[in-house]
Computed example of a mutant assay.
Amino acid sequence: MANTPQSKKRARQSEARYAVNKARRSRIRTYLRKVEEAIASGDQTAAAEALKNAQPELARGVTKGVLHKNTVARKMSRLASRVKALNA
């Protein structure tokens, strides 16, 4: 348990940061799920639109430190290639 005033403050900050990061991660997952569902439906225009909406959220996850840069790059690349493949 935190004893000093500084450690108590750090514990409060940690809880607040955890809540924000959890919400942000959940929001990102929701956008990814929408892309996955659009791909599964086979509608290329809907999938492309969902991907277009998801990309800024993923990028924001990187800048806020929730996700790693390479993880997001990999996810975006794979989703984009899957959306592109729907056209063929």
Rank of each mutant, 00 (worst) to 15 (best):
I28V: 15
A40F: 01
S81W: 02
A88Y: 11
N3T: 12
T45W: 09
S41C: 07
A46L: 09
R82W: 03
N70A: 08
A59H: 13
K69V: 02
M76V: 12
A54E: 00
L67I: 10
A2E: 10
T30L: 11
V35E: 06
A54S: 09
E57H: 12
L79P: 05
I39A: 00
R33E: 10
K75L: 11
R33H: 02
Q55Y: 05
P5F: 04
M76R: 14
V35L: 01
T71A: 09
A88S: 15
Y18T: 13
R27G: 14
A59N: 15
V35D: 07
G42I: 05
S81C: 04
S14Q: 11
N3F: 11
R27A: 15
K64Q: 14
N53L: 13
R24F: 07
K52F: 14
S7H: 08
L51D: 08
V83M: 07
K22M: 05
E49C: 03
R25P: 07
S81I: 01
S77M: 06
K75A: 12
A16N: 10
K84T: 09
N53I: 13
T4V: 03
Q6M: 08
A48Y: 05
Q55F: 06
K9E: 12
A16P: 00
L58N: 00
R29M: 09
A23E: 13
T45I: 09
Q44N: 13
A47F: 07
T71E: 13
A85F: 02
V66K: 06
Q55T: 15
V35M: 08
K8H: 01
L51K: 05
P56K: 11
M1G: 15
H68F: 13
E57L: 12
A50E: 06
H68E: 14
A16E: 15
R25G: 00
S41H: 06
V72D: 04
K52P: 03
K64A: 11
R27W: 13
R78Y: 03
R10E: 10
L67N: 09
K64P: 04
N21T: 08
E15F: 08
N3S: 13
N53A: 15
A54P: 09
N70V: 01
R60H: 06
S7E: 14
K34S: 14
L67T: 03
A46W: 04
V35P: 04
A47P: 07
M76Y: 06
S26H: 11
R17E: 13
E15Y: 12
L79S: 08
Y18P: 02
N70D: 12
P56I: 06
A50T: 00
N87V: 10
K22N: 14
N87I: 09
Y18S: 13
R74C: 01
Q13F: 00
S81D: 08
E57V: 13
K52V: 03
G65W: 10
A40R: 11
A59Q: 15
A73N: 10
A16K: 15
A23R: 09
E37N: 15
